[in-house]
Simulated scan of single mutants.
Amino acid sequence: MTARHASPLEALLVDESFDADIYPNEPMARHTMYRIGGPARFFVQACSIGALKRLVEVCETSGTPWVAVGRGSNLLVADEGFAGVVVTLGRDFRVCRYDEDDHRFCVGAGVPLSSVVQDAFHRSLAGLEFAVGTPGTIGGALRMNAGSRDEWIGSRVVSVTTYSAERGLVRRAGEEMVWGYRTSSFLPDEIIVECELSVEPADPFFIRGKMEASHARRKKTQPLTYPSCGSVFRNPEGESAGALIEGAGLKGFTIGGAQVSELHANFIVNTGGATARDVMDLIDLAKRKVYEAYGIELQPEVRFLGFS
């Protein structure tokens, strides 16, 4: 393709000064915890804030659909894939520093949450034990306010920096954000690039005890041996989504290679060869059966990409 006939996006992607790794027609099954998903038109790992800005601006001005993802721990991608650009954060967004004076971690959004939890543990710093075993990145954890009903990551945020084509780089204090159960007030077009998390020195045996208890609870109640997206539905007020789905008779129910977990009914697992359509059909079935049985409309917390 000559430069004359290239679109602005294609011209950017072949520009040698563009600080990114580019994968055309990249199967998204390689980038989701579900191991499910067709190809993205382009999968781009932006390695610097400059590259991220250039990419998002070109996508916006050319009308090319784009989405930012972390490790795909909460993502279901259609079998047909995504006819746009999937953006992920590389090198410069994978740095984690600890400020001993303020007891804060300054963390790039591409850093795995689990590595920050372990770093805090090795420094005898408390506050992040609840997140042990959480599989996503810091950026993904902030967007969905990862945690339990009692402890969540938003409560630890001192500041957060985001980028959008419309507003540029914006830094906000943690208390300026709205943190809810599995939700936050980030706008859809905002990409989280960095945050500061508060921790405090504590007895390492206390930290280890909390982490081990949290990990044991997760191991006992969650199907960690199969690929999944974690919890499929938010728990309705005063209810357990898993208990409702089980009460509707769907625990262990299978469509194709997808199964409502026999261990926890709010997990739909890939038992091998599941398609996105298999999972989506189970999601729709669970919503319908729970509504028929209890009059409660379940709200998915999994993100969907590429579905019409």
Rank of each mutant, 00 (worst) to 15 (best):
M1A: 13
R4T: 14
A6M: 14
E10N: 07
D19Y: 14
A20E: 05
E26C: 00
H31N: 12
T32G: 08
M33F: 11
M33P: 13
M33D: 14
G37D: 07
G37V: 04
G38Y: 03
P39Q: 11
F42W: 12
V44F: 07
V44S: 11
G50C: 15
R54I: 12
L55K: 10
G63F: 04
T64M: 14
P65M: 01
S73C: 05
L75R: 03
L75P: 00
V77P: 04
E80N: 15
G81Y: 03
G81C: 09
V87M: 02
F93G: 04
Y98F: 14
R104P: 07
V107Y: 06
G108A: 07
G108S: 10
G108R: 00
V117C: 09
R123M: 11
A126E: 15
F130T: 01
A131L: 07
G133T: 01
G133N: 08
N145L: 02
A146F: 06
S148C: 13
R149T: 15
D150M: 11
D150R: 13
W152I: 06
S155Y: 04
S155I: 07
Y163H: 01
S164F: 07
E176G: 15
E176W: 06
M177S: 04
W179M: 01
G180D: 10
E196W: 13
V199G: 04
K210L: 12
A216F: 05
Q222R: 05
Q222V: 11
Q222W: 09
P223S: 14
L224Q: 10
V232A: 00
F233S: 01
N235W: 06
A241W: 03
F253D: 05
T254I: 12
A265K: 08
N266W: 00
I268R: 00
N270L: 08
L285C: 12
R288L: 15
L305V: 08
F307R: 01
F307T: 00
